[in-house]
Structure formats: C-alpha cells, structure tokens
C-alpha cells in the first residue's frame, strides 16, 4: 500500500476497494467529505475523519485543533453548522501523559471557539509500535443552513471559482517541522474553522453557492480536480491570482513542491454562480477567515474533468492531482 499522500492513488483506493466492498450499503451518488442524511424531513449532515498528523504539535496548531477544525470544516462544506462532535483517541503505550493533556486541552479550546460541544468519545491504548504516538478520530453532526445545498456535483459552467485565503502554509509547516527544514520560523499552519465564513457566504449567495471544498490533503489541485470530475466541468485558474505567501513560495521552490499540491486546513474553494460571485466574495472578505479571499478562475463547459492553469506566459498548463509521491515526468 502506498496510498498516503492524498491524491490519485487514494481516490483509486476508495473507488476500487473500499466503496465496492459496501455493496448495497454504499452511499448513493457522488462521494463527499460529509453526507446529508435526511431524518424525518430534517437534513442532518454527518462526517468522520481520522487524524494521523506527524508531528503532533506544530506552529499554528496541533492534532487536537486539527481534529476539531477538520470535521467542522467537512460539515461546513455541505453548508452545515456543527451541532455536536464525538472524539476518539488511539494512544500508543508510553505516550507522554503531558502531551495527551495538551492535545485534549486543544480539542476543548477549539470546540469552544467553534461553538460546538464534544458530546461523546472513546479512548484506546494500544501496544508499542501498534500506533505512532497518537491518532484522533472525530465524528461530527451538523445542521444544514437554509437556502443552499452545495455539493461536489454542483459546479456549473460560468461559475466563478473563489478561494478564501492564501494556500500552502499548513503542508509546508508540517513538512518543515517533521523533517527539520527550518521553514517553520516564517510559516505557520492556517488551521481554523470555516463554518461562520460559510454561513456568511450562504447568507450572501444562497443557492448560487453551488459547491464548496476545503483543499486539505493533495492541496487545491486535488480539490479542483475532484470537483471538475464530479461535476463534469472544466476549470480554468489564473496562476497569478493564486495567493501564495512569499515564505511559502520560497519554501516550495527549494523543496520542489507546487503550492497547489500542498495541504491546507483553513481555507476553502467555492463555486458560485457568476451573478452572485461579487456579493459572495464581499461577504467572504467581511470575515477574518476570508479577509484575503480572491476570485481565481472560472468553470467552463469545455475539457470536462480537467483543471487548467493559465500561466503568466499565457500558456495553459494542466494542473493534475498528485499521483502517489511526486514522480518527475520530465525525461
């Protein structure tokens, strides 16, 4: 198994192995990070995620904050406000108690800040070597905001592609800390909850907000490709409009990474009907999480399933999902 880096291969693992195994219990329709489950006419939104980040502590956050924000954000991408969370810890024997306290405190602080209770949970201690320190699994239940039903299938030709903030900080920070590369002096993770930003967007755009995605693993490239495929549309992005903080850009250059492939934990991409795009963008900018929001491109009916970046030279480069680890394609 070499499916760790969140791109093409993970998608294949899900599509070829995990979902087929469910048979008739598989979800109907497109796969989303959160599912809408109607209960007695009420749209309940459900999401679950396992957090295995290494290192556990990093500038801008830790695994506990991430475990709250990630699940809150997955709910938010279906225009749902979080109602309750469940948190499970898998702890390796010998893991320092002080660190566990620190993570638990972080979970609490993040949940309070997001305004969502942690209503239940679980803890398992496993033998040495059976886990790498600490894993956290978070499940969230949310309630859908009235007026919008964004879905990964919803992007439509003509939509504006809006990005809520700068990209690349989280993944670069994690890599820098884990491998001791020293970039984390200038960069920190962007991890933050986005449900209030989404509420503001839905307020301004209503059902013109067609699709939302948080570009976590695989970066904005994976998020855009997933939407392009699921919605059956082409997406064209303007390279110069992509906000990449200068230290992130510098780090990516030296590491040979495309910032578009680097993970984020505190921004989202939105596909919004053109006539409401300016209003939604203004609403995003009125929130601190969306202060630096920008319009980065448009959805087209040509080249369905493909994401193309218009470069500063004026050529059109195909922006692909990562295929496993980055393998050079240059001969």
């Amino acid at each position: 198994l070499g499916h760790g880096s969140g791109g093409q291969l993970s998608a294949e693992l899900i599509g070829d192995v995990l979902v087929p195994a469910l048979g008739s219990a598989a979800p109907a329709g497109a796969l989303e990070d959160a599912a809408v489950v109607p209960i007695d006419g009420v749209d309940v939104v459900l999401s679950t995620d396992a957090y295995v980040v290494s290192p556990l502590f990093f500038p801008g956050g830790d695994i506990g904050a991430l475990a709250v924000h990630g699940t809150v954000n997955d709910l938010a991408m279906r225009a749902a406000l979080p109602v309750a969370l469940a948190v499970a810890y898998v702890v390796e024997e010998g893991f320092p108690l002080a660190d566990l306290r620190r993570v638990a405190a972080s979970v609490g602080a993040a949940a309070r800040a997001a305004g969502v209770p942690v209503v239940t949970g679980d803890t398992k201690v496993v033998g040495r070597g059976a886990a790498d320190g600490l894993y956290v699994v978070t499940t969230g239940v949310g309630q859908r905001l009235a007026g919008a039903a964004p879905s990964a299938t919803g992007a439509a030709p003509g939509d504006a592609v809006l990005l809520s903030g700068p990209i690349g900080s989280h993944g670069t920070t994690i890599l820098s800390v884990r491998e001791g590369l020293g970039f984390d002096a200038d960069i920190c993770s962007d991890t933050q909850p986005l449900h209030r930003l989404v509420a503001a967007m839905v307020d301004a755009g209503g059902d013109a907000v067609h699709a939302l995605r948080d570009p976590t693993r695989g970066g904005i490239a994976s998020a855009l490709n997933e939407i392009a495929v699921t919605s059956g549309v082409g997406i064209e992005i303007d390279e110069q409009a992509l906000p990449v903080p200068a230290p992130v850009q510098a780090a990516c250059e030296i590491l040979g990474l495309d910032p578009a492939h680097v993970a984020n934990e505190g921004c989202l991409v939105a596909f919004v009907a053109a006539h409401r795009a300016d209003a939604v963008l203004a609403a995003m900018r009125s929130r601190p999480e969306g202060r630096a929001a920008v319009n980065i491109g448009t959805v087209r009916d040509t080249e369905p399933g493909r994401v193309v970046v218009r470069t500063s030279v004026g050529s059109r480069r195909i922006l692909d999902m990562l295929v496993g680890e980055q393998l050079p394609r240059i001969c």
Partner: peptide, 24 residues
C-alpha cells in the same frame, strides 16, 4: 548556503528526493 543546507537535509531525510540511475 541556505539552498545547500536545505538540500543536504532533504537528501538526508528523503524529502521529495527520489533516486535515479540517470545518465542525463
């Protein structure tokens, strides 16, 4: 020096540094 030191670290830790037997 910044590039050299970072690359030394990348190479040592195997960060985005696949090995090749390339002649080119």
């Amino acid at each position: 020096s910044a590039e050299r030191d970072t690359i030394a670290r990348m190479v040592a830790r195997g960060v985005n540094s696949p090995h090749t037997s390339s002649a080119g």
